[in-house]
Amino acid sequence: MMKDARLSFMLLFLFFLAGCNEQAFTKINPHQSFVASVNILEPSILFYDGTEEIAKWEFDKAYTGASLIKKDRILLYGHQLDEADLYELSSGRKIQTIKTGIGTTNAYYDEEQEKIYLTNSKTNSIYSYDDQGKMLKELKLRNYPMSMTSYDGKLYVVNYKDTILSVIDMDTFVVEAEWEIEKSSNGIIIIPEEGVAWVGGHGEGSKSNQAIDVYNLQSGELQSEINVSLMPVGFSRNDDTIFVVNHGSNELFAFNLQGDRLWNIEVGANPFVVTTYKNYQVVAGYDDHKLYFIEDQKIQKAIETNQGPFQLLVREVVK
């Protein structure tokens, strides 16, 4: 009798604990557009509509990055965490945990293929998952795969500590080509109109990189270099402009698709990321933990966010 009582009490306690663990964050309306900053010094995601904060999700896990999946989900991963968590925006709840092993450097979701790709620096591999979080395949790449983008059925992966960019056929999941690139390359954007890929980077050793390397999509050859200021690592674009953030010089550069500089401004402190949201270019200052909303080459607004904004996620719902 006594034992039963204790058992049921313990079960109750466990449910209670599990309930606590299963914390629900502020729900995000599916019809809500937002730009969200993924902060890594104070692990959190802050959602903004325009320049208004609409939700603040704060975590007690050391997430180092996040990726938006199918508009209503966010996959959070950590370089030192052995699992990635999938959250549903509309419910504010964690819906799944994916065992990844430690070393996850980046997550990329391809909308056409409806697949999630995770790169890992411990195994130097890329893993593909379906959108339910089921692992499909593993593919060995080069040293420290990290930056990813996709175009026309191909996945382009920059190996951060290597001099090779891996081009993967997403259907067969095999390395189709390897391009020679600079070491410590980071950030890639494909410009289909020109048939090129722009690759940024920090620079090797103590030497800062001051240029964007332009590669021919077909041949993988280095086609040209675009001079910027210091350490271009973040790319974004709208229809006719490419935005590049230089974290070494705290500058945002705007280029036309051909690589001609249109304008540049100084923005933020140590910004790693730029994105476009509505009519804004949004830049996150890692050191001053501020989001800068830029329009017409001017900073329209700066918003304080949590410490260490490192990535920006954008969801624009067309009404």
Binding site: T64, S121, K161, G203, G205, S206, M231, H247, S249
Partner: peptide, 18 residues
């Protein structure tokens, strides 16, 4: 003033002694 020397890239792994 070299940001590389100032550990500006720190969220990224750096392979040299800043």
């Amino acid at each position: 003033r070299n940001p590389r020397e100032l550990s500006a890239c720190v969220p990224f792994e750096i392979d040299y002694d800043a």
